[in-house]
Design a protein around this nucleic acid. Structure first.
Length: 825
RNA sequence: GCGAGAGUGGCGGAAUCGGUAUACGCGCUAGAUUUAGGAUCUAGUGAGGAAACUCAUGCGGGUUCGAGUCCCGCCUCUCGCACCA
């Protein structure tokens, strides 16, 4: 047996043994309390894993193993999010069919993941692009459909001209495609939509129940974007045929209603065509057409210059009967509120800008002394604060707050308004015009109309095809496959056509956490009782990049399934932890950036594992910095961990046969280690947990301890603490100190306060808050005695000489501070 | 513009309650060992100073016996949102 630390020998050995003994298999039934620790499953990319991906997996694995040692029945599964744009784009780039490419990538990434020897129960592996799995994704879609939460609509959607598909609102970042960063354009398409907006209030309210980082909660809150206000109806007269129309608007400031001097409709608003006067028609049409063409990015960048056109029509302000002109402008968004606004230029920054540019009247209705004014006394900029109402008829003198109530009530009586709330959240565009996704299980029959595929006919399998490239026409590539498209109607048996759009990348991941508890169940997507046992997920670990998309969609699916009675919980993830990104200086850009292939700054774990072994890599991933913050990878830093493990190995190998007389200080240090490691794991401070191991080993390496030796029990406790971090290392030494059972069957050690605390403490002695010495005291030593002893310290005496002591501050066992009359000692 | 987080040695970073700032690691310096390189071990390592000491946690104030930590005002960086009526 070798006495050198050779990870290359011991790691494969334990990898094999754990496999043979099914050590990581989670039992179906157990007496123990359950614990569900989940990683955000990866999409199988061609470039494989780099050390940045590993960080989260190592972190969750330490946590899962810790929970196991604490006596929980731990579920820690892994799978593949293999449908969707990233997988498909990767396949297209390589010219390999997505199915084949995905399989290949899964194999490669699984090989890499197996190397880190996380406690994954691979018997529960799932793959969202396998028919056994997506059968149930389709099934859930049908449930959503039958609940009336899925509908088809012709809408101007976000279109990525590069990916050649529609995108959800959540997938557009600063007017660009989240994936490829191409500017997004608008396209009118018949789309499947999910009514996530119906859940807006619950998605918002229930954030309170969750143990999530505030940052993520804030991001979701802002995304859902709740505002309180009123809906107010303006009666508009068409300038074309004198027909009357209602134009409802949403406002958060009904108190400024008397200041509404004009109205603006979004260019795409359905009333535009109906009310525009013949004289204005050409100008309006030009403007509408132009704003359709302008990509989102430009529209956003033109924040400074407002544009717009008058429709020729007027609407009646319901509080004062005033005729206000109706304009159109792209600063009004069709998708928010009602797609139309009442413009109050005196009290809204954007309206002020627009009114100034087009010379529209500006009427102040909130009194303000503080407002900045031009020479003539008119406003220099919009006054946004609340205040007392002026120029508001019967409501003059009321505060904004009172006026909001009163004016809304007044309108409600006249049936021209009511209290209302508005959300920024929009319905989820669920159609993708791409090949690599779950086919939407709907059939169109000329006789029976839109018909869901009967559940017994699921899955609607994705056909094996040669050509899978996106068409760019707004139709999915599936449209060109007659064998797929043409089918018979489940209603009347006549000829019918299939829906050819596929689901977005997020579909499969919106419910996968429900699948792991019974991953290969054939007769259902999941079993209620099993799901209720395991879920919600106790700890969910993954990157911040999913703060909105995946987490919001998963919460939505969970709530729908809860409402349908399929599960007994309405939030999927109780605790969320976001690990920071691993960065490295890129030679190409010269900046410290997130690891990515395009930046040329990726570090592959394969070489490192070969050289140092996975235990070293695991511990370095944790040691590198606070888990929740971004960190910079330093190639040399890993040496320190390797040295630590070697040092520890040598120390323990040396002692394995010794029975020693152990001193109390060693016991004390051991118990402090138990306390610190436990506390630091609990707080996800893995970097400092690793340092506490180092400090303990440095202590054991002191000459006096080396000669005296330590008890086997001490070493054993140390190994159990270390086991979640360096599992092979600990397992091997555990065996070498004489155990035949796995170390992971042990119990997590408990801190014994009576052993961890000492009778004597080191108190600091200060004169005028400057350290002049230390004193060994007992915790309950009387202050008088401590004072006396402290004053006997030579330096203290020196600084106190000739001074009058004004005050003495004593914190028992910690500090004694003599304050003298002069400030400087 | 709004919101959140961060700023501590040459570097990554520690510092439960306001109580010895710089734990732990990297790097560096010197020595030991080694044919050499590497590895390992020992000692040292915030700055100034011969020392006594003094000064240092982005900047400027404040509270306190005592501030990296609390309060006020700035600066810089990162992330998120951004015409949301």
């Amino acid at each position: 047996m070798s006495h050198l630390y050779q990870p290359q020998k011991i790691e494969p050995k334990w990898h094999r043994i754990w496999q043979e003994t099914a050590a990581h298999k989670t039992p179906e039934r157990s007496e123990k309390p359950k614990y569900y620790c989940l990683d955000m499953f990866p999409y199988p990319s061609g470039s494989g894993l780099h050390v940045g991906h590993l960080r989260g997996y190592v972190l969750s694995d330490v946590w899962a193993r810790y929970k196991k040692l604490q006596g929980y029945n731990v579920l820690h599964p892994m799978g593949w999010d293999s449908f969707g744009l990233p997988a498909e784009n990767d396949a297209i780039k390589r010219g390999i069919h997505p199915r084949i490419n995905t399989e290949k990538n899964i194999q490669n990434m699984k090989r890499q993941l197996e190397k880190i020897d996380a406690m994954y129960d691979w018997s529960r592996e799932i793959n969202t692009s396998s028919p056994e799995y997506y059968k149930w994704t389709q099934w859930i879609f049908l449930k959503i459909y039958k609940k009336g939460l899925a509908y088809r609509k012709m809408v101007p959607i976000n279109w990525c001209p590069s990916c050649k598909t529609g995108l959800a609102n959540e997938e557009v970042v600063n007017g660009r495609c989240e994936r490829c960063e191409s500017p997004v354009t608008k396209k009118n398409l018949m789309q499947w939509m999910l009514r996530i907006t119906r859940y807006a209030d619950r998605l918002l309210q229930d954030l309170d129940k969750l143990d999530w980082p505030e940052k993520v909660k804030t991001m979701q809150t802002n995304w859902i974007g709740y505002s309180e206000g009123a809906e107010v109806v303006f009666k508009a007269l068409s300038a074309r045929n004198k027909e009357e129309f209602d134009i409802p608007v949403f406002t958060t400031r009904p108190d400024t209603l008397f200041g509404a001097t004009y109205m603006v409709l979004a260019p795409e608003h359905e009333l535009v065509e109906k009310i525009t006067s013949p004289y204005q028609e050409k100008e309006v049409q030009d403007y509408v057409r132009q704003s359709e063409r302008v990509p989102e990015v430009e529209r956003l960048s033109e924040v400074k210059q407002k544009t717009g056109v008058f429709t020729g029509a007027y609407a009646i302000n319901p509080v004062n009967g005033e005729k206000t002109p109706v304009w159109i402008s792209d600063y009004v968004l069709l998708a928010y509120g009602t797609g139309a606004i009442m413009a109050v230029p005196a009290h809204d920054r954007r309206d002020f800008e627009f009114a100034t540019k087009f010379d529209l009247p500006i009427r102040e209705v909130i009194y303000s002394q503080e407002a900045e004014r031009k020479k003539g006394g008119s406003l220099k900029e919009a006054y946004l604060e609340e205040g007392k109402l002026i120029n508001s008829g019967a409501f003059n003198g009321l505060s904004s707050q009172e006026a909001r109530e009163k004016i809304t009530q007044h309108l409600a009586r006249k049936k021209l308004g009511k209290k209302s709330v508005s959300y920024k959240l929009r319905d989820w565009v669920f159609s993708r015009q791409r090949y690599w996704g779950e086919p939407i299980p709907i059939i169109y029959c000329s006789r029976c109309g839109e018909i869901p595929v009967p559940e017994k006919n699921l899955p609607v399998e994705l056909p094996q095809v040669e050509k899978y490239q996106p068409t760019g026409t707004g139709k999915s590539p599936l449209e060109n496959i007659p064998e797929f498209v043409n089918t018979t109607c489940p209603g009347c048996g006549g000829p019918a056509k299939r829906e050819t759009d596929t689901m977005p990348q997020w579909a499969g991941s919106s419910w996968y956490f429900l699948r792991y508890p019974d991953a290969h169940l054939e007769e259902a997507s999941f079993e209620k009782e099993t799901a209720n046992y395991w879920l919600p997920v106790d700890t969910y670990v993954g990157g911040i990049e999913h703060a909105i998309l995946h987490l919001l969609y998963s919460r939505f699916f969970t709530k729908v399934l809860y409402d349908l009675g399929y599960i007994g919980f309405d939030e999927p993830f109780q605790q969320l932890f976001n690990q920071g990104m691993v960065c490295k200086r890129s030679k190409r850009t010269g900046k410290v950036e997130k690891m990515s292939k395009s930046k040329g700054n990726v570090v592959s774990p394969d070489v490192l594992i070969e050289k140092y072994g996975i235990d070293t890599v695991r511990m370095y991933e944790l040691f590198i910095g606070p888990a929740e913050l971004d960190c910079e990878w330093q190639d040399q830093g890993i040496e320190g961990i390797f040295r630590f493990l070697k040092k520890t190995w040598n120390l323990i190998s040396k002692w394995e046969r010794e029975s020693a007389q152990e001193d109390r200080e060693t016991q004390r240090r051991l118990h402090l280690l138990i306390r610190d490691v436990t506390e630091r794991i609990e707080a996800f401070k893995f970097n400092t947990a690793v340092s506490s191991f180092m400090e303990f080993i440095n202590f054991l390496n002191r000459p006096e301890i080396l000669t005296r030796g330590v008890k086997n029990k001490t070493i054993e406790t140390f190994l159990v603490l270390l086991a979640p971090f360096a599992p092979h290392f600990s397992e091997e030494l555990w065996e070498r100190v004489g155990h035949s059972e796995s170390i992971f069957k042990e119990e997590w050690p408990l801190y014994d306060r009576s052993l961890g605390e000492t009778k004597f403490l080191t108190a600091v002695v200060q004169v005028n808050s400057r350290v002049r010495g230390t004193l060994t005291v007992t915790k309950d030593a009387p202050e008088e005695k401590v004072r006396e002893e402290a004053r006997r310290i030579e330096k203290v005496r020196k600084y106190l000489e000739g001074k009058e002591i004004k005050k003495v501050v004593y914190v028992p066992g910690r500090i004694i501070n003599f304050v003298t009359t002069t400030t400087k000692g």
